[in-house]
Design a protein around this nucleic acid. Structure first.
Length: 422
RNA sequence: GGUGAGAUGGGUGAGUGGCUGAAACCAGCAGUUUGCUAAACUGCCGAACGGGUAACCGUUCCGGGGGUUCGAAUCCCCCUCUCACCGCCA
């Protein structure tokens, strides 16, 4: 949620920035300004009525103590008048403030100045490409390799649960576990504190990171207990800092965590969801940072570099995209996507997304810190996948396939305990 | 699932109708003093919103919502959550 104070001060600039997303929000922004002015004026009226009423109530108390009952009674008439007008005004204020909130919820984050204009993925800017597409003598897609070596069983998952819930077995399961461990160890080496959060969250957490109210349909809902299965570790890990005032010395907060992620992915179908490309349950290691505002863009680059270092170590061909305004998430001010090359499908697969949310999340979360002047100030929040497993597994299987089997990348061997899947 | 207790500021925890935005203690900040990785003493120390250049002023907030009252942390109703004991159980 954008800060109302920022809209008051810089509404022209905000409208301009939002054009980067291909949106014209001028009408809504102007609407907000009117409603806000209205709400403030009404609130002022209400507060002065309350102030008078409070004062009179204090007087009455005093008079009663002094035994001047008659005087007290005469003042009571005036306070009951005030009481009704306070009630009316407060209802009006509440109405206006709700209206304001509704309007604010509809405005996405303002893209940073470095974000390119654009409407769709076609307008994303490739900022880096590392490696070359692997030249393969055999070129089987990962789902065929998975079947050939018996490491991932999609049909069995359908039997147990449904499409999008694969069963990993044998070396497939070990490879999964190796990747998770590798990513967590790398995170630890880079100063991230590991967290094992709950896999279900309550409604308040859903609102905190913005999954609720609009993206309700994306999450699995456990009705009996009214809880949601997490779509990403970002939800519980970021919500740890909901309603928290950090000390300046606590920043930067650097957390990483492995969790399974659950996504309904309603409406997805077709060839691009084949195999591991899109699942309802998948594993991911997430990194989250809470930082001082002036540091957040430097940290975004650090996090992006860190994610790239993982892909480098795995020896995969990848590229880094700076997302254009139209392709960025609602809450992000700047996002880099990392896409890994799938040599058999001959397409790029998104495997990480690193974003700076500035105060968009922390405003709703009320995640603040006390700055040097002793003032509480909203922190900036960032997160990124480091990394999401399925597409990495797909890329590894396809990239390292040989006639003799799939060669395990060097860095994983101490974790897997084997160097070839055959 | 059953029974009982509770929800107060960064933490512990007083407070049963006006003098309480809230005692005390701890933590934190500033200073004084003695000086060796510290003690003693003094002062400050919640948040949000609005107004003012500022000092400052006003309003709201004691789990959430509603009610009684001139006046509610304190009384009444509803909800949520937490804890303890019992039952069940990885």
């Amino acid at each position: 949620m954008l800060l109302i104070s920022r809209i008051r001060e810089n509404h022209e600039e905000i409208i301009e920035r939002l054009k980067t997303r291909g949106l014209d929000m001028s009408e809504i922004v102007n609407n907000i300004l009117t409603v806000d002015a209205n709400a403030r004026r009404t609130r002022n009226e209400m507060e002065s009525a309350q102030a008078e009423s409070n004062q009179l109530a204090a007087q009455i108390g005093k008079l009663i103590k002094e035994g001047k009952k008659d005087e007290a009674e005469s003042i009571k008439n005036r306070t009951s008048e005030l009481k009704t007008s306070v009630k009316e005004l407060s209802e009006k204020v509440q109405g206006l403030e709700n209206q304001l909130k509704e309007l604010l919820y509809t405005i996405p984050n303002t893209p940073n100045v470095s974000v390119p204009r654009g409407k769709s993925a076609d307008d994303n800017k490739e900022v880096k490409k590392v490696g070359e597409p692997k030249q393969l003598t055999q070129k089987l897609p990962h789902w065929e390799l998975a079947a050939k070596y018996g490491i991932i069983d999609f049909d069995l998952g359908v039997k147990l649960t449904g499409a999008g819930f694969p069963v990993y077995r044998g070396k497939g399961a070990r490879l999964q576990r190796a990747l998770i461990q590798f990513f967590l160890d790398e995170g630890y080496k880079n100063g991230y504190t590991e967290v094992q959060p709950p896999l279900m969250v309550n409604e308040a957490s859903g609102y905190g990171t913005g999954q609720l109210p609009d993206k309700e349909g994306q999450m699995y809902h456990v009705g009996v207990e009214d809880l949601y299965l997490i779509p990403t570790a970002e939800v519980p890990i970021t919500n740890m800092y909901r309603d928290v005032i950090l000390k300046e010395g606590d920043l930067p907060v650097k957390n990483c965590g492995y969790t399974p992620c659950f996504r309904r992915e309603a409406g997805s179908y077709g060839a691009h969801v084949r195999g591991l490309n899109r699942l309802h349950q998948f594993d991911k290691v997430e990194i989250v940072q809470i930082v001082k505002p002036e540091d957040s863009y430097g940290v975004l680059e650090d996090m992006s570099d860190y994610v790239q270092s993982l892909l480098d170590k795995l020896g995969l061909h990848y590229r880094v995209l700076l997302l254009c305004g139209g392709d960025m998430g609602f809450t992000s001010a700047k996002t880099y996507d990392m896409e890994v090359w799938s040599p058999a499908q001959e397409m790029w697969l998104e495997c990480s997304s690193v974003s700076n949310f500035e105060t968009f999340q922390t405003n709703r979360l009320k995640c603040r810190f006390k700055n040097e002047q002793g003032k509480t100030e909203l922190a900036h929040s960032l997160n990124g996948s480091a990394l999401a497993l399925p597409r990495i597994v797909a890329a590894i299987l396809e990239t390292y396939q040989t006639e003799n089997g799939i060669v395990v990348p060097e860095v994983l061997r101490s974790y897997t305990g084997f160097d070839i899947i055959d």
